[in-house]
């Protein structure tokens, strides 16, 4: 996606309560805004819902990772025990699959867990140490502490510096600031 790397990133409204944020976000989404994001100091499910974010793909990645771990370890064990280095342990068959279950089980969990954590970060586009919003001093000081933010982004076709500002002012935020790249 080609984003303009200069000029305005968007307009950022600051709210005191989660309720005010959710109401503003809902109104903006209903008015046709699609390039917008909400920011909160803790998981605020309602805000994600009202801007049309219902499903994510972390569970799928986790499932795929877990199955990969399971197959990798089970086939490694089978290959080692039957072909690469067959050992006679108390006369047991070389392919003694019940004994292989435990390490395969552990690797299922290992791969699934790593996929969940790194998949979540990748889908979120993290790590990304720079973001234009950090240029807004009020975002920088309170987005992770106690304030709630709604950002209407300049890439949305509805974006207009003056009209959008007025639109945001209508929700009685603490402030509306323009964020530069």
């Amino acid at each position: 996606m080609a984003l303009p790397r200069e000029g305005t990133y968007g307009l950022l409204a600051e709210f005191d309560t989660p309720t005010a944020l959710v109401e503003a976000a809902k109104a903006a989404h209903d008015a046709g805004w699609r390039r917008l994001d909400c920011y909160a100091p803790y998981p605020l499910e309602e805000a994600a819902e009202v801007i049309g974010f219902h499903k994510n793909r972390v569970p799928l990645l986790t499932l795929v990772g877990g199955l990969m771990g399971l197959c990798a370890m089970f086939s490694l064990e089978t290959w080692i025990s039957t072909l690469a280095y067959p050992l006679n342990i108390a006369g047991r068959p070389t392919y003694s699959w019940p004994a292989f279950v435990v390490p395969a089980y552990e690797w299922t969990i290992l791969f699934a867990g790593l996929s969940a954590a790194f998949g979540m970060l990748a889908l979120n586009g993290l790590p990304s140490l720079y973001h234009p919003l950090f240029n807004a001093p009020n975002f920088r000081s309170s987005a992770t502490v106690d304030k709630f933010f709604l950002c209407l982004e300049a890439t949305d076709p509805k974006f207009d510096r003056v009209e959008t500002k007025n639109f945001l002012e209508g929700f009685h935020p603490n402030s509306v600031v323009e964020v530069e790249y």
């Binding site: 994001d37 994600a48 972390v58 969990i109 867990g113 954590a117």
Partner: peptide
Amino acid sequence: SLGWRGNVKHWMRYETASLLLAGLA
């Protein structure tokens, strides 16, 4: 912090990942 900025979409994936990690742990 890896550049965490509290985006609510990030939070949703984060909550899912936490729950899955809990379910796996």
